[in-house]
Amino acid sequence: MSTRIPTSRGQQRPVTLAVLMREAFVALNGIVMARLAERGHSAVRSAHSAVFQYLDDTGTTVSLLAERAQMTKQAMAELVRHLEGHGYLVRVPDPADRRAKLVVPTDRGHEVLAIAGELVPEIDEWAGRVLGPDRVRDLKADLDAIRHAATGGRERVSRPEP
C-alpha cells in the first residue's frame, strides 16, 4: 500500500502542520463522501465539496464560488456543470443583476447539504472519543485563531464554545 505523503530524494517529505491539516480534512471528507454514496449520491465527489461548502442557500454566482474556494472560474464552472447534470444544482437569473446567474441547490442538493450537516455532530463526537471533548474544543479554537491570523484578522469562522 502506498502512502499519501510524497517522497523527495528517496525520503518522505516533512509532515508539516499544513500537511497534517490537509490530510485530516481529506480523511474526514472521505467519511462524508462514503455516507453520501451510501445514501444514493455517488455522483458527488470530494472536489464538489468546494461547491457545497461555499454555496449560499439563496444562490451564489460561479465567480463568487470560485473566489471563496480559491480556484479558477473555469474549474468551478466545471464542478457546477457536473452537479447540474446530476440534478443537484440549477442556475437561475440573479434578480439583482440580470446579466448574472445564481447557482442554487435543488431538493437533491439540499439533501446532500442535510446529510453533510447530520455528520457534523457525529464527527465531533468521534473526535471527542479520540482526543477528548476539551481537546476538540481547544483544537477548533486554535484552528480558528490560525485562520484569523493568516487572513490578517479579516474573518473568523466560529465563536469559541464556552
Rank of each mutant, 00 (worst) to 15 (best):
A141L: 03
P93K: 04
E78K: 10
L79A: 00
A100K: 12
L119P: 08
T72S: 15
A114R: 05
L28S: 11
R68E: 03
R9I: 11
P14V: 10
K73F: 11
D138R: 13
V80Q: 01
A116R: 09
R22H: 10
L79M: 02
P105G: 07
T61P: 01
V103S: 00
V90K: 04
A96E: 10
E78Q: 11
V112L: 04
L79S: 01
T3L: 14
R129G: 14
K140L: 14
L102K: 04
D56H: 05
P121H: 03
V103P: 03
V80H: 06
D97K: 06
Y88G: 00
L139N: 09
V130A: 13
A141C: 03
R22S: 09
A37Y: 05
A24W: 12
L89I: 03
P14C: 02
W126Q: 01
R98V: 12
A37K: 13
V15Y: 13
E84R: 07
E111K: 06
T106C: 08
F25I: 12
D124P: 01
V62L: 02
V80A: 02
D56V: 04
P6D: 07
R108E: 12
K101S: 07
E38F: 09
E125I: 14
L131W: 14
A50S: 10
A18M: 15
D57W: 08
R99S: 12
V80L: 01
D57H: 12
A127F: 08
A114L: 03
V136P: 06
A27C: 09
E23V: 11
V136S: 00
H110N: 08
H41D: 06
E84T: 04
M76S: 06
R91W: 02
A34S: 11
G10D: 14
D124H: 09
P6F: 02
L139Y: 08
K140N: 10
H41T: 06
V104T: 13
S8N: 06
R137S: 08
R91I: 05
H41M: 09
F52Y: 14
V44D: 00
T61Y: 01
V51Y: 00
E111L: 01
Q70N: 09
S42K: 07
L131F: 15
V26P: 03
A47N: 04
E111S: 09
V26C: 10
A37C: 05
L65R: 05
I5K: 02
R35D: 13
K101R: 10
V51H: 00
P95H: 08
G30C: 06
P6S: 04
M76N: 01
H86P: 03
V90E: 07
F52I: 06
Q11M: 14
R129M: 10
Y88K: 00
V104I: 05
R137N: 06
D142V: 08
L20T: 14
A18L: 12
V32M: 14
E78D: 11
G85W: 04
R45K: 15
R39L: 15
A66P: 03
D138Y: 05
T72I: 02
R22I: 15
E67F: 03
K140P: 01
N29I: 15
L83Y: 11
E118V: 07
Y54F: 14
